[in-house]
Design a protein around this nucleic acid. Structure first.
Lengths: 358, 358
DNA sequence: CGTTAGCACTCAACAAGGTCGAGTGCTAAC
DNA sequence: GTTAGCACTCGACCTTGTTGAGTGCTAACG
């Protein structure tokens, strides 16, 4: 069966109406609202065809039609147009990036928040990992008699604090020396490599700074912890409460199921796919392979079979530093989310490329 | 009318049953389940009295009774016993504190999470302010060509990062010098005082380190921002989704109302009361004035008239460094929450006192 | 005089039946 | 190929009846 022009118009009408209203659309409504120049009976015939093709379904006999996952897929791949962002929106997003570009992890969280606010959906973000990245600087700062802060700066522009207990007090001066020794010795290495050299270098460091080898023990430990923390990818969500706004989750049980899923870190990692599964067809009208869309039952998780996910990765050079995804009902405003996400990713990647390249 | 022993037993039965089941309790149920040695008719008479005293109410004629806010208040002030924490619980809480005592802000967030998990309610936490506290150390660390991280350590053991753009690149050595000068000059002052001295000291610093006065401008700005951020108290919530578990919020509209309230930072600040309104009667059975309870309509916010709030402040010396509150339906497990919260506050305050006193 | 059994009464919750309207599929005519 | 007309379907909503948990009142009991 051929998908002629009129069928496409009808399908678009059903999808866009359903995205707005969450109500099944009938033939008479389409005839009245969209000026197709044919009667409702004709539209009825076409809709019958569309249903046969699996693009729309009836929730129950004698109700209007609703798009199927396959219908959304066709829409996303072929039909939809990118939405133009308003000047305020793109300005807002631009500012967000330029303001926080110094701290990628913070930036991504802020981006997630902004995206949730802008789209009214829920966003998931995975934090950049520092395991594979290399150390640029480390600095020890006294916090308390027996506590010091270790600030780790890595080459992907992430600064992180780790608080650690030490066996005896060192003054500011001594800690500065220690920092200097560490920097000279380890700058440019990955944290994994640093730890593996710990046993060899401990005595050397101890001698240079004039502390006992014992003193360094907590530092190695803290670095190990840092790796553990980072290896277990950090995941945050934002705007989860937006779920309550959608009639498809007005049943408290369904809302709860989604909330529970959003708290399962492991599942979220699967959802974000950690940058691997960009195998889904890309958005044709945007020609932007950085963004991928997973619709309803295409999702591996049954808990999310009524949800769609739109996601993108951030890169520095060739390295994926994190992902950000938007999750909502299958009846999602795909054009809006894809446009906003594409804009954000474009902004961030261009700024990051500029920095790391220069 | 006198609240005799039997009336108290009946009231306790109603309250503890209702806290568990959220169902109105009838006279026959009490007669069967609690061995009071009298018939349901007698209990009916007593319940009629309790209602007259305003301690219990009927949701509608011919239904069982439900505790009123006044009833809960009596229960909280006079009747309830502190629940003994299990060894696992108190161990868990102890560990939580000792592990993270170095970073109060982080500790409080972790505490909020743990508390939400343990109690199944929602927790609100306000982060310690650094405005009034004094600077212990500042350290500048290079992040990027034109970006540096400023690590601020204050005397209440909080370390915070601020990323800032600077006009030209300084190497690690120079930044160390700059850090040293700052420390010598400003250590022991509050951030507010430091900023007010900025104009006077700028040239002096610039000369000492060998940079232009322009270079320091972003640093003063970052400190101003730091104050702005800190002055607008940071508030976090944890376990908000637990709200969905309670039948009193099974109506999606009510759940949404609570979620929206929990997102209004200003309201949360009012709720936590910023350590001022400890005027409510304290919990008699615990004799612990650090904990306050606000029940249902006692709350200033109409949005929370069906909620109770149990909260506590953290102190270092005489300074309140933050608050933590638990929010749930008025039908809350007061003994549990009060006990857990009391335990946590005791832990933290004793450790903090030890450190700051020593 | 406090306690109890008995009884009439109330009301939410649930189920069953009825009506309404939006929407469909089919058929015959244009 | 398109359209009007018509019978049919089914969720949504309303009404009505039934059930059961629970109450208040009264009269009787020890």
């Amino acid at each position: 069966m051929i998908l002629n022009d009129r069928k496409i118009k009808i399908l678009e009408a059903i999808i866009s109406d359903y995205i707005r209203t969450a109500e099944p659309i009938g033939s008479r409504t389409i005839a009245k609202k969209y000026d197709l120049g044919v009667s409702s009976a004709t539209i009825r015939n076409e809709m019958s065809d569309l249903e046969e093709m699996g693009l729309i379904v009836q929730p129950h006999a004698s109700s209007g039609r609703v798009p199927s996952d396959k219908g959304y897929r066709l829409y996303v791949n072929e039909l939809m147009r990118a939405r133009e962002l308003s000047l305020e929106e793109s300005d807002f997003l631009q500012q967000l990036v330029t303001k926080n570009i110094g701290q990628i992890d913070f930036l991504m969280q802020e981006t997630a928040k902004a995206l949730a606010m802008l789209t009214k959906y829920t966003t998931i973000v995975s934090e950049p990992k520092i395991v594979k990245t290399t150390l640029k600087h480390v600095q020890f700062v006294p916090l308390d008699e027996n506590t010091i802060v270790m600030v780790i700066v890595t080459d992907n522009k992430v600064a992180k604090n780790h608080v650690l207990k030490v066996s005896k007090e060192l003054d500011y001066q001594k800690l500065s020396e220690l920092s200097l020794v560490f920097n000279n010795m380890f700058s440019g290495l990955s944290i994994k490599d640093i730890i593996s050299e710990a046993s060899v270098k401990t005595s050397q460091i101890a001698e240079a700074v004039g502390v006992s080898a014992d003193y360094l023990e907590p530092i190695w430990q803290a670095l190990s912890v840092a790796i553990q923390v980072e290896e277990s990818v950090q995941i945050y969500t934002s705007g989860a409460k937006n779920i309550l706004e959608f009639p498809e989750f007005s049943d408290i049980e369904k809302a709860r199921a989604i909330f529970n899923t959003l708290e399962e870190k492991e599942l979220l990692i699967t959802i974000l796919g950690n940058g691997t599964n960009l195998t889904e067809p890309s958005v044709a009208s945007l020609r932007n392979d950085l963004i991928s869309v997973v619709i309803g039952s295409e999702n591996n998780l049954v808990e999310l079979k009524n949800c769609s996910i739109i996601k993108a990765n951030y890169n520095i050079g060739n390295e994926v530093v994190g992902s950000i995804g938007v999750i909502g009902p299958t009846r999602m405003d795909y054009p809006q989310v894809v446009s906003v996400l594409a804009n954000i990713v474009k902004n961030i990647n261009s700024v990051l490329k500029g920095i790391s390249g220069g």
